[in-house]
Design a protein around this nucleic acid. Structure first.
Length: 822
DNA sequence: AGCACGCCGACT
DNA sequence: GTCGGCGTGCTC
C-alpha cells in the first residue's frame, strides 16, 4: 500500500554516543503503539548496532534518507513529557557550533544529571544443556551457572579467550542474552496507608474484631483521626505498629497500601509561611527597576549591566523585577556562583516567592535535582535559582535571566561543552525576547567594554542602601616590614588591629587565597623543591590530622615529608610561603584566647560543613573567620569590623592575563565584607606590590580607574575583549609528541590565516601547567575578531589534530572563548 | 564511543 | 591448526 509508505513517519534521533563519527541524526521507525508518544524532544531507547542506547528525537520526517531495510524501530519512550523543548533543541545545535562539541554532549548538558538510561547486554545460562561441549565451553557454562548473569562486555574484557566459546554456546542455546535496563533517577514512590471505609462502618467493623486485637484497633482509630491517608512510614513511627498489624488490617479490607509519587523537597517546606514583603527602593534602585521593567515590556532581547557596590541593593532589584516578570505570566532564571549559593541566598528567594522557586545546585542529590528540574519543566514554578547549569532551566516563556556576580569565572564550564552561561543567556534572551540582567560590583572587562560600546545598557547604583560609605582600606607594604625586622605573617599594624578587635569582642575576617600550610618546601643546601611526580607543580605542605604531608593541589597526589633532603641529604629543608593552616597556627600562638574558624576546601569537604561553620561564626561563637576565596562572596555578618588581607599578591602572580582583573575583583569583594551595618569597619591589606594598579585601585575602590588602566593594557597586548581567544591544548606522555600535536593546529591555522589581519595565530607554547596527571601539555592560541570567520577552520584544525592524537594515544582539546589559560 | 570482524604472528 | 592481539569499519 503506497499510502502507508508516504504516510510513514520517521524520527530523526541523536544517539547518546559522544563520538564525532556518530555526531549526526539517525532515522528510526515509530511503531504503531508509540505514534502518540514519540514527539519532538522526547527521550527514547533505540537499537544502535549491537547495542541499545538512549536517544533524543529532534525532528519527525516522512523523507527516508536511509535504505528502508536498515531502519530499525524505536524500542521505548523514556518520559511522559518530552524533556527537550524546541528551543532547547535549537540551543543544543548552537552549543555544538559555538563550543565544538558533539550534540550528545550538548544535550546532556541541558538535562539534569543522573537521568541517563543505560541498557547493558547480559548473558546467563539457560536450562538447555547440549550433549556435546568442549572443555572451554564447559568452563564458561559452569562459570555462568555458579556466578549467575554476567555483563557480556565486562566478561569478554576479563576473559578474552572465552569469546569463541560464548558465541558457540549462544548458537547452541546453552546460554541466552538479554538487555538489562537501568533507569537513572526516577520519581520517588512513597507508600501511603489509605483507610478503605467511612467512620461508621469502621467503628462497626472494629467492634467485631477479636478482643485481643488492641493494636489493630489503635492503628485504625489513629488513621481515622489523621483523616484516613497517611504515609506508611509516619504511621509506623507514630503508632509503633508492626508490619504484621498493618498487613492484618489490609487483609480485612480496612485499609490499603498505595504507592504514590512524591516530590523530593531539598528544603523540606522550610520558609513556608515566612513570607517577606518588598523592601522600599531608594531613588537609584527605583530608576534601575523601572529601566529593567520597560525593557521587559518591549519583549525584545536586551542586556543590562547593573553595576553597584556590595550593599547597594542589587538583590532587591532582582526580586522586584522577577515579581513583575512573573506577574506578566513569564518566568525568570537567577544564576549565582556555586560558592555564593548559600542558605542565606536561597532563604531570600524562598521567603519572597515561597513555592514558586526551584533551586538547582551541586549539593542536591541527583533525585532532588531531578525533582526540582521537573517542577520547572511541568510549569509548577516560575523562578529557578541556581549555579551555572540552571541557565538551561526548561522554561517556555522566559522573561528574565539574571546573572549575579557576572564577572565570576565559574560561569564558564571547564568540560565539554565548554559553554559560558552569559552567552547561553544571550541566546535564550534572543529566542524569548527576554531581558538579561548582569549584576556586579566589579564587572568583567568584556561586559564593561560592551557597555562602553553601547551593546549593553549600564545602570549604576552609586551608593549603599544605608548610605554608609565604603570602609577605609589601609595598605601595608610588607617589604618595609621585612626591612624593619618583622618576619611574621602579620604586619605590626594588622597584629595590633587583631588584638584590639579581640579586646573589644568584635569579629573579623582574615583572607588568604591559598590553602594548606605552606606553598612549597625547599632545601636551602641544594635548592631541591618537592614536586608532584605527575604534574609540573610544587607540592604543598599540609597537616592532615596533625601529621605533615605533601600534597598536589591539581591531582591530589600525596606523600610523606622527608626529614632530610632526598637529593643531597641536608637537614636544611624548610617550608616557604604561607597557607591558611599556617596562618591558623600563628593566630593560635599569638592570640591563644581567640576562637578561630578556618574555611577552605579542606575544612568544608563534608556535606553541611560549609553551612555549619558559617552558622557558628554568625552566632558569634567565634572571633576570627579565616579563609580562602570561598569567604569572599555574599557573606554578610553585621558583627564584623575588620577585614585583614594577609597577602593580596597570590592571585596577582598567576601566569594568566586575567590575573590583575581577578586580583582587583577579589580584593574589592573581600573589602566589601565589612561595615555594611552600623559598626564602622576597616580593611587592612598586606602586599609586596603596593604600587600595582590592581591593588591601588582596590584600595581606593575605584572601579573606573581600574577599568581604564586595564583596558589600555588589554588593547596594547591584543587581549580580550578586543580579540576573542580560542585555545587548543595537546597532552601526551611524551613532551615531543605533545608539542608536535599542538604544532598541527598551529600549522593548519597559519596556512589559512597568515595574511589575515583579523586573525592572530600564536606560536605553540608550553602550558603554564606544563605537566598534569603525568602528561606534558602545550597550548596553541588563536585570536580573532569574528568567530564566524574562523569557525569552520577551527573545527577542521581540531578534527585534523584530534585524528593524529587518537593514533598516538594523545589528547587534543579545544576551548572556544577560553577564560583561563593554564 | 563501543562492539564485531578479520587479519596476522606465536604457540600447543 | 587455534589463540589472542590489534587495526578497521559501522552504527539508522
Amino acid at each position: 500500500m503506497s499510502t502507508k509508505l508516504t504516510k510513514m513517519l520517521l524520527a530523526e534521533v541523536i544517539v547518546d554516543v559522544k563520538s564525532h563519527e556518530t555526531d549526526r541524526t539517525f532515522q528510526y521507525f515509530i511503531p504503531e503503539e508509540l505514534q502518540k508518544r514519540v514527539v519532538i524532544g522526547m527521550r527514547v531507547l533505540v537499537p544502535f548496532g549491537p547495542r541499545r542506547v538512549e536517544g533524543y528525537v529532534v525532528s519527525l520526517t516522512n523523507n527516508p534518507e536511509t535504505p528502508l531495510e536498515k531502519v530499525k524501530p524505536i524500542l521505548r519512550v523514556l518520559d511522559e513529557l518530552p524533556p527537550l523543548t524546541p528551543e532547547l533543541i535549537e540551543l543544543s545545535d548552537w552549543l555544538c557550533e559555538r563550543y565544538i562539541c558533539t550534540r550528545a554532549q550538548a544535550v546532556q548538558a541541558l538535562l539534569p544529571g543522573g537521568m541517563r538510561f543505560k541498557s547493558t547486554l547480559v548473558i546467563e545460562a539457560s536450562d538447555v544443556t547440549p550433549a556435546i561441549l568442549d572443555a572451554r565451553e564447559k568452563e564458561v557454562l559452569s562459570f555462568l551457572k555458579n556466578k549467575g548473569p554476567q555483563v557480556k562486555s565486562q566478561l569478554l574484557k576479563d576473559h578474552p579467550s572465552w569469546r569463541g566459546a560464548i558465541a558457540k554456546l549462544l548458537q547452541k542455546g546453552a546460554i541466552t542474552e538479554r538487555f538489562m535496563e537501568r533507569t537513572g533517577v526516577k520519581e520517588k514512590q512513597v507508600a501511603y496507608v489509605v483507610l478503605q471505609m467511612d467512620r461508621e462502618s469502621l467503628l462497626q467493623k472494629l467492634d467485631h474484631l477479636q478482643a485481643n486485637a488492641f493494636k489493630q484497633k489503635e492503628v485504625a482509630l489513629w488513621l481515622l483521626h489523621q483523616g484516613g491517608t497517611v504515609r506508611l512510614r509516619d504511621l509506623l513511627a507514630a503508632t509503633k505498629a508492626a508490619r504484621s498489624t498493618i498487613e492484618a488490617l489490609r487483609q480485612k479490607g480496612i485499609l490499603d497500601i498505595e504507592q504514590r509519587e512524591e516530590r523530593r523537597d531539598p528544603y523540606h517546606g522550610r520558609y513556608i509561611g515566612e513570607k517577606e514583603g518588598k523592601l522600599p527602593l531608594t531613588a537609584a534602585q527605583e530608576r534601575a527597576y523601572s529601566a529593567i521593567l520597560s525593557m521587559l515590556q518591549t519583549r525584545q532581547a536586551h542586556t543590562v549591566l547593573l553595576q553597584g557596590v556590595t550593599g547597594s541593593g542589587k538583590t532587591e532589584i532582582y526580586l522586584q523585577t522577577i515579581e513583575a516578570c512573573v506577574q506578566m505570566g513569564r518566568q525568570a532564571i537567577v544564576l549565582v556562583p556555586e560558592i555564593a549559593l548559600t542558605p542565606q541566598m536561597v532563604e531570600r528567594f524562598k521567603k519572597r516567592f515561597g513555592e514558586d522557586v526551584a533551586v538547582l545546585h551541586s549539593r542536591l542529590s541527583p533525585g532532588e535535582r531531578y525533582d526540582e528540574w521537573r517542577r520547572i519543566r511541568q510549569g509548577e514554578v516560575s523562578i529557578a535559582v541556581g549555579a551555572r547549569s540552571a541557565v538551561f532551566a526548561p522554561f517556555e516563556k522566559l522573561g528574565l535571566l539574571i546573572i549575579d556576580e557576572e564577572h565570576e569565572l565559574s560561569y564558564k564550564q571547564e568540560e565539554n561543552p565548554k559553554y559560558h552561561a552569559r552567552e547561553v543567556a544571550y541566546f535564550r534572551a534572543l529566542y524569548h525576547g527576554a531581558t538579561v540582567v548582569l549584576g556586579s560590583a566589579t564587572p568583567s572587562m568584556e561586559v564593561r567594554y560592551a557597555a562602553a560600546k553601547g551593546r549593553v545598557t549600564r545602570i549604576l547604583l552609586p551608593e549603599r542602601v544605608n548610605r554608609k560609605p565604603l570602609p577605609p582600606v589601609e595598605i601595608v607594604d610588607m617589604r618595609l616590614e621585612l626591612k624593619q625586622g618583622n618576619r611574621s605573617i602579620f604586619s605590626r599594624r594588622l597584629h595590633e588591629a587583631i588584638a584590639e578587635k579581640l579586646a573589644h569582642r568584635e569579629q573579623m575576617i582574615l583572607f588568604l587565597n591559598r590553602r594548606g600550610y605552606s606553598t612549597f618546601i625547599l632545601c636551602r643546601a641544594c635548592g631541591y623543591v618537592a614536586r608532584c611526580p605527575s604534574c609540573d607543580v610544587s607540592l604543598t605542605y599540609h597537616y592532615l590530622n596533625s601529621i605533615p604531608i605533601l600534597r598536589c593541589h591539581y591531582c591530589g597526589h600525596s606523600e610523606e615529608v622527608a626529614g632530610r633532603c632526598p637529593e643531597c641529604g641536608s637537614q636544611h629543608i624548610r617550608n616557604f610561603g604561607t597557607g591558611t593552616q599556617k596562618v591558623e597556627e600563628e593566630l593560635l600562638r599569638l592570640f591563644p584566647e581567640a576562637r578561630v574558624i578556618r574555611m577552605d576546601v579542606d575544612t568544608t569537604a563534608t556535606k553541611g560543613s560549609h553551612e555549619r561553620l558559617l552558622r557558628t561564626f554568625g552566632a558569634r561563637e567565634a572571633d576570627i573567620l579565616l579563609g580562602t576565596q570561598m569567604i569572599a562572596k555574599g557573606l554578610d555578618f553585621p558583627g564584623v569590623t575588620l577585614v585583614g588581607i594577609i597577602t593580596a599578591d597570590t592571585s596577582l602572580n598567576v601566569p594568566d592575563f586575567r590575573a590583575a582583573e581577578r586580583t582587583f575583583q577579589l580584593l574589592t569583594q573581600v573589602a566589601g565584607r565589612v561595615g555594611r551595618h552600623d559598626a564602622a569597619g576597616e580593611v587592612i591589606l598586606q602586599t609586596y606590590h603596593p604600587e600595582h594598579y590592581a591593588i591601588q585601585c582596590a584600595v581606593t575602590q575605584d572601579y573606573e580607574r581600574f577599568f581604564q588602566k586595564e583596558i589600555e593594557i588589554r588593547h596594547s597586548l591584543d587581549h580580550p575583549p578586543f580579540w576573542e581567544m580560542t585555545v587548543f591544548t595537546a597532552a601526551h606522555e611524551s613532551q615531543k609528541e605533545a608539542y608536535r600535536l599542538a604544532r598541527e593546529t598551529e600549522r593548519w591555522m597559519r596556512r589559512r590565516f597568515s595574511e589575515d589581519p583579523e586573525v592572530i595565530v600564536h606560536e605553540t607554547t608550553a602550558a603554564p601547567l606544563a605537566r598534569l596527571h603525568g602528561k606534558y601539555r602545550f597550548h596553541q592560541v588563536i585570536k580573532y575578531k569574528s568567530y564566524k570567520k574562523v569557525k569552520a577552520e577551527l573545527l577542521a584544525a581540531y578534527f585534523h589534530a584530534r585524528a593524529k592524537a587518537k593514533k598516538i594515544d594523545g589528547v587534543l582539546s579545544v576551548d572556544v572563548n577560553a577564560q583561563m589559560v593554564l
